[in-house]
Design a protein around this nucleic acid. Structure first.
Length: 789
DNA sequence: GTAGGGTTAG
């Protein structure tokens, strides 16, 4: 239905004066703007300039910049106000290039101070203090007089200039005083804030003390100045001297948020309690801080109380509900998180991202994918990143890579964090070439020393089997955090350099970096792979006694693994008996695989029974147990276990290996003939097999678990193991001298291990195999990890 | 038509 031009003219005039007033009006105005717009297109109806300007403003304020621009372009000679509205609209949406272009196209004679202010504000908000300052100088040169608005904006922009140039704040301060702008609170507020940002708290305080009419922003700026610089006591003191209730509320908010930012959650909550006692009620700005404190320190109960409190007060804000969503999923309450999300009267992008990240971090990838799809066009960089990184975390490296490409196609320039997500995908996938390319791109755009990217690079190189590169990245990092150290220790540990991993750990302690629970996981794994049992045991014991980190089930399972690998079963048993909680599946698994290595049937059966109870659907237990029987020639027992597995409907996870050739990943299954070049690969593999048998390789048919009668048949089955196919493919495709890096989703078998030992000598190539558990480096007839277990 | 501060998703 098209409104007729007369009608439009009447309403447009009626609304024009009120357009910017309040939200319902603005919403009505947006509809009106649309209708007028449609009429311009269909009927050639042209409202008067001031109405058109209002409509453009409505579009801008409703974030409909493209429509605003259409209207703007309809005006043959846009006046100063139309241009200012456009500049300010683009500025507010952060689109500086477009704001700039409208601004630059405006002749000097049309510009005025307000228009300069709109431009400077945009630059200041975008964090470009230099351009804000130079535009300020340009306007002075052009003979325009800066006013309060100008000084407030340009000063706030200065907060983003480099530390060395903080002296220019004083110059602008002097200029503001001279022009009389310092008698206005908005300007002095900006001064307090910018002085605080540069740690010039005395100057900030001096300005603060001289402000006769302090408003909310004055108090928050001063308080934030104190707490962001760690002067919590000064903040509390400031608070104690306050009288006005409303001002006290905002000061409390700033103080609480400062505590939360500094990780002082307990102090934050104490402050909330104090606030409530003194009769001040929480507001929309208090909730997110409190809830984040609860979420990060796992205080679900307190969080629920806050939720109830907010419900009683009948408040709604995106920030509140979004914080609730993240509180619940971080505390593992996914249904509650979803319920809050579903009940929201309106949702913004943050709400969607919060729920998405809840799904992703809890492994609900199916739901996450649905949600991601449902989001359609309304995604931002973070949406993509959450999904990419989440896919990688859940083992979907290929999908992560694909999504990263999609993201770029849709015009998102990845930030450093987005790179860390896709690099993680390469790590999962073993995509060395892909990873190298992303590394090169990082260097090109200057992100290579970003903590998140560099940490991801260390892990990626390690997981691709190139420890030296991982080490190099670590060495070149200008600043490192515990994640960086953990990544390097893990890298070394995975590749059997256990002693070195332990050295790095000791060095980390010397550097004063506090180990966290991940550090201990990596150190224990390293000790376990290197057989450093006593040392590992000592590190484990130090967790609680020295670092106050209570070991979790994952730490205990590493300890069991450590003990079992060197055959210390009685010790392992007594650890399990003295656990402060019920042993988890993970712990029994560690015991079972230890028993497998040593053929400890008795204990192995105990562990397997427990696992059958705890996770009857898990195929690994059946395989391990049946393998154990088979290895000792107890074929009947092995068959019984496999029958049990069949009866319970447990499916064996399909073995799959893959290899990257020129950034393309090629996947192979057992007996796989689906690859276009399968035939050639098979005949090449047969040839290799013959060649190696001549050199003494004997297929070890113990590893064939199918019920096959003849030995010849069994050998055929061995040759078609997916990792052998992938390696053969690599030999065919990769240039001579290049290492073959193959990845497998399950553990490799002893026969394949043996096969590759021979192969590495025959073809004179390095072969690196990463299976579910560990890395195997084959070079010239030897394997770095010796025994393949 | 323009300003100053504090909050949510990794």
């Amino acid at each position: 239905m098209q409104p007729n031009p007369e009608h439009i003219r009447t309403i447009a005039n009626r609304y024009a004066a009120n357009l910017a007033l309040c939200f319902p009006l603005r919403r009505a105005s947006l509809q009106l703007a649309r209708a007028v717009h449609a009429n311009i297109i269909t009927f050639g109806f042209h409202p008067r300039a001031h109405i058109l300007n209002r409509l453009i403003d409505v579009y801008c304020k409703s974030s409909e910049l493209a429509y605003a621009r259409h209207l703007f372009d309809e005006i043959p000679e846009p006046d100063r106000i139309a241009r200012t509205t456009m500049v300010s609209g683009y500025s507010a949406s952060g689109d500086i290039p477009l704001a700039r272009s409208v601004f630059d196209e405006t002749p000097l004679s049309v510009r005025d101070t307000v228009m300069y202010n709109a431009m400077i504000t945009g630059l200041a908000h975008a964090g470009d203090g230099y351009s804000a300052a130079s535009t300020f100088l340009e306007m002075k040169r052009g003979g325009f007089r800066p006013d309060n608005f100008t000084f407030a904006s340009v000063l706030s922009g200065l907060a983003h200039v480099a530390e060395e140039e903080r002296e220019c704040v004083r110059q602008f301060h002097a200029a503001a005083v001279k022009s009389g702008a310092c008698s206005v609170t908005s300007v002095t507020n900006a001064l307090v804030s910018v002085y605080s940002k540069f740690d010039l708290l005395h100057s900030a305080r001096r300005v603060f003390d001289e402000i006769s009419e302090k408003d909310e922003r004055t108090w928050t700026s001063m308080m934030t100045g104190y707490v962001k610089n760690g002067f919590f006591d000064s903040g509390v003191e400031l608070l104690e001297g306050m009288m006005d209730e409303r001002m006290k509320l905002v000061a409390y908010n700033a103080l609480i948020s400062g505590y939360v930012h500094g990780g002082l959650f307990k102090e934050a909550l104490v402050m909330v309690r104090r606030m409530v006692w003194s009769g001040i009620e929480l507001d929309a700005f208090t909730y997110p801080s409190v809830l984040r404190a609860c979420a990060t320190s796992g205080l679900l109960q307190v969080g629920k109380e806050v939720h109830a409190y907010a419900l009683r007060r009948g408040e709604f804000s995106f920030h509140l509900d979004n914080s609730l969503v993240s509180l619940y999923y971080k505390c593992g309450k996914f249904d509650e998180a979803r319920a809050v999300f579903d009940k929201m009267p309106e949702r913004d992008l943050v709400s969607w991202n919060a729920l998405l990240s809840g799904y992703v971090s809890s492994g609900h990838i199916g739901e996450a994918k649905l949600l991601f799809k449902e989001m359609g066009e309304k995604k931002n960089m973070l949406t993509w990143m959450i999904m990419i990184s989440g896919l990688a975390d859940n083992g979907f490296g290929e999908e992560g890579l694909r999504l990263f490409a999609c993201m770029r196609n849709e015009g998102f320039e990845p930030c450093d964090y987005a790179f860390s997500g896709v690099i993680k995908s390469c790590a999962v996938l073993g995509g060395y070439c892909n990873g190298q390319q992303f590394h090169a791109q990082l260097v090109k755009i200057g992100f290579e020393s970003s903590l998140s990217s560099a940490n991801a690079l260390i892990t990626m190189y390690a997981r691709c089997g190139v420890v030296e590169e991982a080490r190099r990245v670590f060495m070149t990092m200008p600043c490192k955090d515990s994640v960086s150290w953990n990544a390097l220790i893990a890298a070394l540990g995975q590749h059997g350099h256990g002693a070195e991993a332990v050295d790095v750990y000791e060095e980390m302690l010397k550097e004063g970096i506090k180990p966290d629970r991940i550090t201990f996981l990596t150190v224990l794994t390293a000790c376990s792979h290197a057989g450093l049992v006593d040392q590992g045991r000592r590190y484990f014991d130090s967790m609680e006694s020295v670092y106050c980190i209570p070991p979790g089930a994952d730490h205990y399972s590493r300890l069991i693994d450590l003990l079992c690998r060197s055959g210390r079963f009685s010790e392992a048993e007594s650890v399990i008996k003295s656990l402060p909680f019920e042993p988890t599946a993970q712990i029994w698994e560690a015991l079972l695989s230890g028993c497998r290595v040593y053929g400890n049937m008795e204990l192995g059966i105990v562990a397997a029974e427990k696992l059958f109870e705890l996770i009857p659907e898990h195929d690994g237990t059946y395989m391990l147990l049946s393998n154990m029987y088979a290895a000792t020639g107890k074929w009947e027992e092995a068959a019984r276990v496999r029958k049990l597995m069949r009866d319970r409907g447990v499916k064996k996870e399909l073995a799959c290996s893959w290899i990257e050739v020129e950034t393309q990943v090629h996947k192979f299954l057992v007996d796989d003939t689906s690859h276009p070049e399968a035939e050639a690969v098979y005949s090449y593999l047969q040839e290799l097999g013959k060649e190696m048998r001549r050199l003494g390789y004997v297929p070890d048919t113990n590893f064939v678990l199918h019920d096959v009668e003849s030995d010849g048949h069994k050998q055929d089955m061995l040759i078609t193991h997916s990792e052998k196919i992938a390696v053969a493919f690599g030999l065919m495709k990769l240039p001579p001298g290049r290492a073959i890096r193959v990845f497998k989703n399950l553990r490799t078998c002893g026969d394949c291990h043996n096969f590759f030992v021979y192969l590495s000598r025959v073809v004179q190539r390095d072969i690196v195999l990463r299976d579910r558990k560990r890395f195997h480096h084959f070079r010239n007839g030897e394997c770095s990890c010796g025994n393949f277990w």
